[in-house]
């Protein structure tokens, strides 16, 4: 992390690198039969635990904890799936094919089809292709993730100015980083920001997919995951 901090040269970006959460792993039930329900159960359990990680991570995004509790909730309720998808996409970048939900839970096209998540897989793959072409680095990933949180367009914001300040702070950090680290491409920050609509579209599709899983009722869902799916 120290090398990365020195490299980024921007205080906010360095801070975001430092507060990047540790990896979490899938915990499949070894006694469960190998089928689509087992895969989805393992995935939903992983997402539930990742949600706790995301909520704790958000507290360390500069300026977030200074917001009112209501605004913190509003941002997270709107952005959690975008944050989660961006992490999934970043982990999957080095892989030829497959979505790296965790190092021990990589879902390839066929598995996604079997569990009813093929449509979502294709959309996420489009996002992965985009970031792979851009050669998204870790500094950009952490900054975009914080921007997704701050730019969540929650309908229930009390202090619009505070959110705007947070967005401006992160935007400045990205521009500063790009100016210093990617001199050769003056349009790079724009290119990165232009990926955010696809990220939102993908997150909305993911929410729909997991709501379908809830409706089907075959997979046990944890309370926090259900709460966040209802809130979105």
């Amino acid at each position: 992390c120290c090398q990365s901090s020195k490299k980024s040269g921007n205080k906010i970006v360095s801070h975001l690198l430092l507060v990047e959460p540790d990896k979490i792993y899938a915990m499949a039930d070894p006694t469960a039969p190998e089928n689509d329900v087992k895969v989805l159960t393992t995935l939903c359990d992983l997402v539930d635990r990742e949600l706790v990680v995301i909520i704790n991570w958000a507290k360390h995004v500069p300026g977030f904890s200074a917001l009112s509790l209501g605004d913190q909730m509003g941002l997270l309720q709107s952005a959690w799936m975008e944050v989660l998808i961006l992490g999934l996409v970043f982990r999957s970048l080095p892989y030829e094919e497959g979505l790296v939900y965790a190092d021990n839970l990589v879902l390839e096209r066929e598995q996604c089809r079997v569990v009813g998540l093929l449509d979502l897989y294709c959309t996420i793959l489009q996002l992965i292709t985009k970031y792979r072409k851009l050669q998204l680095d870790k500094e950009e990933f952490v900054t975009l993730k914080a921007m997704a949180l701050a730019n969540s367009d929650s309908m229930s914001i009390e202090n619009v100015e505070a959110i705007q300040n947070l967005q401006d702070l992160l935007h400045e950090a990205l521009q500063d980083y790009e100016t210093n680290q990617h001199l050769a491409d003056p349009h790079r920050s724009g290119k990165l920001l232009m990926t955010l609509p696809l990220l939102r579209q993908t997150a909305n599709k993911a929410i729909q997919s997991f709501r379908r899983v809830v409706t089907e009722g075959k997979v046990p869902m944890h309370k926090l995951f259900l709460e966040m799916l209802e809130a979105k």
Binding site: I55, H60, P62, G63, A66, L69, G70, L224, M228, A231
Partner: peptide
């Protein structure tokens, strides 16, 4: 807030403000 009680509780748990 009552409807979203787990999120509410997690956010209130040892909040670590970051002042940069």
């Amino acid at each position: 807030k009552e409807k979203h009680k787990i999120l509410h509780r997690l956010l209130q748990d040892s909040t670590s403000p970051v002042d940069l």
